[in-house]
Each structure stands twice: as C-alpha cells, then as structure tokens.
Design a protein around this nucleic acid. Structure first.
Lengths: 211, 211
DNA sequence: CCGATGAATATTGTATACAGAATACCGACC
DNA sequence: GGTCGGTATTCTGTATACAATATTCATCGG
C-alpha cells in the first residue's frame, strides 16, 4: 500500500523537528520563503503547515508580521498542562481494564527510560510513548488524537528543561506506582497517582521556567 | 482601533455559517473553487479555511479528493461530547466563585431561552452563550479557546436535532438547578448537576441520531 | 442489458506571480 | 551624538497558473 502524504504534512513534521532540535529557538521569526527554499518546496505547503502549527500553539502568527516560534512561558505550560492532564485522566477513565500484556510493555518502556542517560530526545520520546501506551485502549479516538496534538506543547518545555537543567526525569518512580495500582485493578488509586504525576511534572517545569 | 482580519478567517466563518444554515448538508462535497468564486476571493484563503475546518472535525479531507462536510454520526457526537463535557467541568472547577452579577446574567439568558419558541438558531446561540458566560471567569485562556473551538461539533448536532425533532431544549431546567447550587456556593452539587446536564444532552442527541 | 474501458473533464495539490504592508537602512536636522 | 523622517527592501497575504490525479460519461464488448 503506497501512501501519498501531502507536502504540508511533511513540512509540518519537518518544522516540528527543527524546533525540537533547537534549530528554531523560541521567539525566532520563521520566514516561509526561507523554509520553502530549505525544504525544496513552494511557499504554499509551507504556509499551510505553519498555519496549523500556529493554531496548535507552537508558533505565533501576527497579522502581517508572519510567524515566530512561541516563547516558552510558564503560564502557557501550566494552561496546556492542566488541559492535557484532564484529558489523559478522561482517556484513562474511558479505557477498560488494562490488559497485563500492556502493563508489561509499560514496565518495559520504564526500564528503558530509567536506563537512558543523557539522551534528552530519547527520554522525551519514551515518556510520551509510555503515556500513549497507557491510553491506547481508550475507545474515544478523537480524544486520543487531541491528546496527541496537545503533547506538542509540553514536549517543547520538557526538552528545554531536560537540556538546561540537565536532569533526567524522575517520572519512572511515578510510572511504577501507577502500574502497580493498575495491576491491583485499583482504578481509584491509579487515577489519583496519575493526577499526582501530572501535577508534579507541571509544577516542576513551571517552577524552572519562572526561575 | 481598526482591525484587518485575514481573509482566511472571514472565509472560515462564512463556511461555518453555510453549514449551520443547512446550505451545506452533511456528506456534501465542498469545492474550494466554487466557494472562491461565490465569496469573491481566490482559492488560497479558501483552502486555508477549509484545512482548518478539517482539522476541527467539521469537514473531512481525503487526499486528492478534496473536502466534504462530515456526516453526522452518533459516535462522533459522543466522543466530542465526552471531551467537551470534561473540559467544561475543568473550566468551571478552575473558575473561582461566580459573582452574583454573572449568576443574574445566567438567569437572564435562561429566561430568554425559555421564551424562545421555534427559532432554532437563536436557541443554540443562547445555550452556547449560557455556557460561555458560566465559564468566562476561568483564567485558563487556552482552555476557553479550546472549548470555544470544540463547540463547533455539538452545534451541528444540536441544530439538526432541534430542526428535525422540532423540540426545544429542556436544558433551562438543568441550567436553573446549576445556578441554584452555585448561589448556595455548593460547588460539589453544581459540578454534579453540570455533569448530569451534559450527560443527558449527549444521550438525547445520540439516541436521536441512532433513531 | 450490464459491465468494463477509455477519453474528456473537473478538481485538487503545488508552484509562481503580484500588490501592499512592515521593517531596516540612511541621511538630515536638532 | 541622538532622533526623526523618508526611502528601499523584504516579507507577508492573496491571486493566478500549471501539472497530476480523480471523476464522469460515453462507447464498446460480452
């Protein structure tokens, strides 16, 4: 099965990759013509991708002034975090019982996460994969898609945090405790620990940004 | 203060208006060139608006096959409803105490809603305004924006329901009970009634779609 | 009569062109 | 030397052009 993906989608991911790589630092202006020449496409798909990123909160679009990478602000982090936390709790709630096979996979991811030293991007990828795996049983596809999109925001903050604070996430402990509760089929405790996990993460990042 | 709004935004609202007016029924193909000529603009801003609507779930975009109005499906309604319900509960939770002045305004909207007979669009507008007013104290602006965007989906379903089922919403009773709880400063009860209100609404619409 | 096949048409996705606004640069004046 | 004003350039927002793909319709064969 061959798949033809629109150029705008490829450009979208390419721009995100550049932002994550730190190639496009916060507050940096993003000129569509530059990107177009760099990526070897025309301005049209580039602009479509940039408009989407602007709607998702990664870029800022001022009328007549084009696009710029959104600066990292604690307020935005906390706002997005509150939303994402709530939606992930909903997704976990809607998921039926988590099958043991998936719990095992979660543990596996956690072990890998604990073993990762220094590689910030790998760390973030694994963390996001952990969450995605946890919620992959949620039947509300639209919710899953929305969560996936919203992750764009915390990713940026986590990346900056892990990079500059030089600290790897301590989330593996939280993860383990959540898994443990799920193993016991104690949804109540799992949910509470999940909330706590999110709360702590948001606060940690927020405090760092406001340093 | 003069404001120059991009054409894409005007086109966006124009297309939404046509969908609400029933001018563009579900499953109807939407040709960008047609819209461009009808609205007297070029294809570029039209396409930008359509891409946004597609991302918001109002339109469907198949690669190479353009856009079409998304058909109404109970599953989509329930999925969006679950998300929106949760987010509005979060927003209410984040709102501090609702000042009496706003409670009065909510009552006012409700009275107008109860007095509205037959005018479906007015009815939906008032209902949405009631919710917006209730949550306008929420400091999480991003959450408010997201809620506002998400309302696009239930609006379509409510409209179709009220039109064809010919029944005006019974939500004023629910609203009144929520306001009553808020007056007593009983957040717990208010939240519970708010949940109930959403649950009932979603079920009612869902059952009707699956008729 | 129905289905398949092919050309003609229509429509999308992308590229390029153009006009107006915003920014940067430069000189003159205080 | 600093600041204001004007001009030139850059860049955005929009329009148009082009190529490739999907759709439609008609014709042909079974």
């Amino acid at each position: 099965m061959i798949t033809r993906t629109p150029l705008r989608d490829q450009v979208y991911h390419a721009v995100l990759a550049r932002i994550y790589r730190g190639d496009l630092p916060p507050a940096r202006r993003v000129r569509d013509t530059d990107l177009a020449t760099q990526l070897g496409v025309s301005r049209t798909p580039v602009r479509e991708a940039l408009l989407r990123l602007a709607r998702e909160g990664v870029l800022e679009a001022d009328m007549g002034r084009g696009f710029s990478v959104r600066p990292l602000e604690a307020a935005e982090m906390r706002e997005s975090g509150a939303i994402l936390s709530t939606l992930e709790r909903l997704a976990l709630d809607l998921s039926g019982d988590i099958p043991p096979e998936r719990l095992a996979r979660l543990g596996e991811i956690d072990r890998e996460l604990a073993a990762t030293r220094g590689d910030v991007d790998r760390c973030i990828d694994l963390d996001e994969e952990w969450h995605r795996t946890l919620l992959e049983g949620c039947p509300n596809l639209r919710l899953r898609a929305m969560i996936s999109t919203l992750w764009q925001v915390p990713r940026r903050y986590m990346r900056a945090f892990l990079r500059e604070a030089g600290r790897v996430s301590l989330s593996t402990q939280h993860h383990a405790r959540i898994i443990e509760a799920l193993r016991r089929n104690d949804r109540e405790a799992a949910m509470q620990r999940f909330s706590h996990h999110w709360h702590r993460g948001i606060d940690e990042l927020g405090a760092w940004i406001e340093r």
